[in-house]
Design a protein around this nucleic acid. Structure first.
Length: 764
DNA sequence: GTTCTAGAAC
DNA sequence: GTTCTAGAAC
């Protein structure tokens, strides 16, 4: 056993009072477990014992029982213990979790780093204690990661830290290095991006690309237990849940240093139709009003929990300016313990007046921790918001109320002339007055927390009710504007959908949002504004529906000239006599993909004008979808007659590059010189690809299809679609898939997602 | 040095 | 969607 202890700096007495802990490390070979232990042990004020199975037997590998025995004796001596072994499967760690007791907490530190990184470290390392060197490392790491089961609090951990990139690891190192003998750490699960799915994540570099899709892997192609939830970010400075970094503009990431946001996907930035309005609110009363943070965090979490059911697609975000703010970490821990949906409520570090411009987080409503006179000035959030909003906010506030009593809130629509509106997209400010515990401020409660808590509860209730009233009003207005659009379709051609939205009766508010939207369009599209305007098909401009006429951007998109080819074929197949065309029917055209990404790759193209992509599909298209599927299936079966070894998959890209709804019928060999890049691969092998059978089911049941439209799906780590092993680049991946005969993942074998020759059904 | 990727242009 | 190519990665 390694006794990496540092006895020099602590007195015996201290150790006796202190509670030892067990930290179970989890991670593949090369994930840095031993290094982690060494770093902590070097700088910690505690006595640690590192129990390493690789070396426990006089420097050689030992048994699990030896590890347990040594851990128990270390704990008896009051020492804290690192369990340094892979521990990737639940069963492998269960006995170590049992080391916990009322006196001994068991923590998990998960070094869930990219497979690529672990592999390269394992390969490179020489003289590693576990003797896992050389070329076999890749195979071993891949195999282990495929069995990975991420830990859950329910296994018996009081605290779990997920580290998915180097900065997470640094944060965990800081946490445990500074974890003194008498300190306690908040309980809960920290830093995991998506607890329930195993989304593969991109190999992008920090500042160049964003990271984990928050929700995109939930479809059939994500496999429980697959080694997928791996982040390749190397420098992300965001600790405790890095998702929000995906929202940040490049220059903002440096400033937003802490966030926990498993819920906000890049769609919040892009403003896709699935977004809901977001209320950003500061912690009320805990700053200048000196309200106790523990009590305040209880109330925030309790009130958030109460409002969860009423939120619909709206979201709440607690904002604080400083990284490592006590109130944020308390709220995070308590929200995690209560299993509050992290998609609907999360925390964010940043300036509440610059959430969009600097943080990339679009919050249409922000709350202000106001003073009772509703006046600018003072300090903190109140001063910041009044400053950022300019005199417009003061004027608009006066129209609504002259003063506030503690525990109440007032909703103020923000004029579009306010910079906070034009730059940040804020439509409303809600002033909230919380209880005051500061004797130097008016209405001090003098330490009466019974009353204080009541008032703070009331304050949050008023705030959330105010927000919900805005949400429901806006939803109604967008319905009305939608009705109006339907009545006046002639006004829309030639404009982006901002045109129709200007007909809405909401006046100022609408214009303001349109400003943001245009900003986004100009960022997203490389073409000129003119191009944007003209390339949106006029038949689509009137199609803005109730959903996409909401606060956020519609699904409508601009198509470049190069993206029109399929549309032209669909409209006039007879003019395209080229040899790609296979079949022309009343509703569909079948053609070979011009750039096939597999031995067989066909497109079944709808001839319906105005149906550009999966996002446009509604219940009235159900029969068409079934026809497309049936035609695709017919062709797949024809090819299977010729070559029984083929396997087909039928489906749609969540966001196609080419206009005009088309079904891909693609053989799963992916044997094509034209499959050249990560986007090609991931567009057919991640949740970005929506199986036709699932789409039909969704349209039938819900009236629309789920779009896994997060760009990050397309830049995820390259993994074999059969065995899910990770590969560093396209050539290596292709070389692997040409030989891989692993069975397809179960999810693909279900529900006829794969189409096989009858003779091939048992062993694809 | 070569291989490979990612972003811009089309 | 592809092509081109700078520059990162090896």
């Amino acid at each position: 056993m390694e006794m990496d202890t540092d006895d020099t700096c602590k007195a015996k007495g201290e150790e006796e009072k202190a509670k030892p802990i067990v930290v179970i490390l989890m991670g593949a070979p090369g994930s840095g477990k031993s290094t982690f232990c060494e770093h902590v042990i070097r700088s910690s004020a505690r006595s640690w014992v590192r129990v390493c199975q690789d070396t426990i037997n006089n420097g050689k590998a030992g048994t699990k029982v030896q590890c347990l025995t040594n851990a128990i004796s270390a704990l008896k001596e009051g020492k804290s213990v690192f369990i340094d072994r892979c521990n990737l499967e639940k069963e492998q760690r269960v006995d170590f979790v049992k080391l916990g007791s009322p006196q001994v907490e068991v923590h998990a530190v998960v070094l869930d780093l990219p497979a690529k990184l672990c592999i390269s470290r394992s390969v490179k390392r020489t003289g590693h204690e576990g003797n896992l060197q050389g070329g076999k490392a890749a195979a071993v790491v891949n195999r282990m990661l495929q069995k990975k089961e991420l830990p859950k609090l329910s296994e018996g951990f009081s605290r779990i830290m997920f580290c998915q990139n180097e900065s997470d690891v640094q944060a965990a190192l800081d946490t445990y290095s500074g974890f003194g003998l008498l300190d306690t750490l908040p309980h809960g699960s920290f830093g995991q991006k998506k607890p329930d799915t195993k989304v593969q994540l991109g190999i992008m570099k920090f500042l160049k690309k964003v990271e984990a899709p928050s929700n995109a892997g939930s479809s059939a192609s994500s496999i429980q237990g697959s080694p997928a939830s791996q982040i390749i970010e190397e420098k992300n400075s965001c600790f405790g849940g890095k998702e929000t970094a995906s929202l940040l503009s490049h220059n903002a990431r440096e400033e937003v240093k802490d966030c926990q946001d498993p819920g906000v996907s890049s769609s919040t930035r892009k403003g896709s139709s699935s977004d809901g309005p977001i209320l950003a609110f500061p912690s009320i009363s805990t700053a200048d009003f000196q309200f106790d943070h523990e009590k305040a965090s209880d109330i925030i979490v309790e009130k958030v929990e109460e409002s969860m059911d009423k939120l619909g697609n709206a979201k709440l975000v607690l904002v604080d300016l400083t990284r490592g703010s006590k109130i944020l970490s308390l709220v995070r821990a308590k929200a995690a313990q209560k299993n509050i949906n992290p998609k609907k409520f999360f925390t964010f570090v940043g300036d509440i007046t610059k959430l969009y411009s600097e943080g990339g987080l679009r919050c249409t409503v922000i709350a202000n921790a106001a003073n009772w006179r509703l006046k600018p000035g003072g300090g903190g959030v109140n001063a910041a918001i009044f400053n950022a909003a300019g005199p417009d906010l003061e004027v608009a506030t006066k129209e609504q109320a002259k003063s506030l009593v503690p525990g109440s809130a007032v909703v103020v629509p923000l004029p579009s002339t306010s910079p906070l509106s034009s730059k940040e997209g804020v439509t409303h400010v809600i002033h909230v007055l919380g209880p005051n515990m500061n004797p130097h401020r008016p209405n001090c409660l003098g330490g009466d927390y019974v009353k204080g808590c009541q008032i703070l509860q009331k304050a949050y209730t008023s705030l959330f009710e105010g927000f919900l009233s805005i949400v429901s009003t806006q939803a109604k207005l967008s319905q009305e504007s939608n009705e109006k659009i339907k009545l006046e379709p002639s006004q829309s051609p030639g404009h982006s959908k901002d045109g129709p939205r200007n007909h809405s009766p909401t006046g100022d508010q609408k214009n303001k949002r349109d400003g943001i939207h245009e900003h986004e369009i100009s960022k997203k599209c490389k073409g000129s504004q003119n191009e944007v305007g003209t390339s949106i098909n006029s038949s689509r401009a009137g199609k803005v529906n109730a959903e996409n006429a909401k606060l956020d951007v519609s699904t409508s998109k601009a198509w470049g000239s190069w993206a029109q080819a399929l549309y032209h074929i669909a409209m006039h197949p007879e003019r395209h006599k080229d040899n790609l065309l296979l079949e022309i029917l009343d509703d569909v055209v079948v053609l070979n993909d011009l750039y096939p990404k597999a031995q067989k790759h066909l497109l079944v193209l709808t001839r319906c004008d105005g149906l550009d992509c999966l996002g446009d599909v509604r219940k009235e298209h159900l029969q068409l979808l079934k026809t497309m599927h049936a035609v695709g299936l017919k062709w797949a079966e024809k090819f299977l007659d010729e070559d029984a070894s083929l396997v087909f998959r039928l489906g749609y890209h969540s966001v196609p590059s080419m206009r005009q709804l088309h079904l891909h019928v693609i053989s799963q060999d992916f044997n094509s010189k034209l499959l050249k890049n990560k986007k090609h691969w991931n567009s057919f092998t991640t949740a970005f690809f929506r199986d036709s059978v699932d789409v039909i089911e969704e349209i039938s049941n819900q009236g629309k299809a789920t779009l896994n439209d997060d760009d990050r799906l397309l830049s995820m780590e390259l993994r074999c679609h059969r065995c899910k092993s990770a590969h560093p680049n396209i050539p290596r991946l292709k070389s692997h898939i040409s030989n891989c005969r692993a069975p397809f993942p179960t999810s693909l074998l279900q529900n006829d997602r794969l189409v096989l020759a009858p003779s091939n059904t048992n062993n694809p």
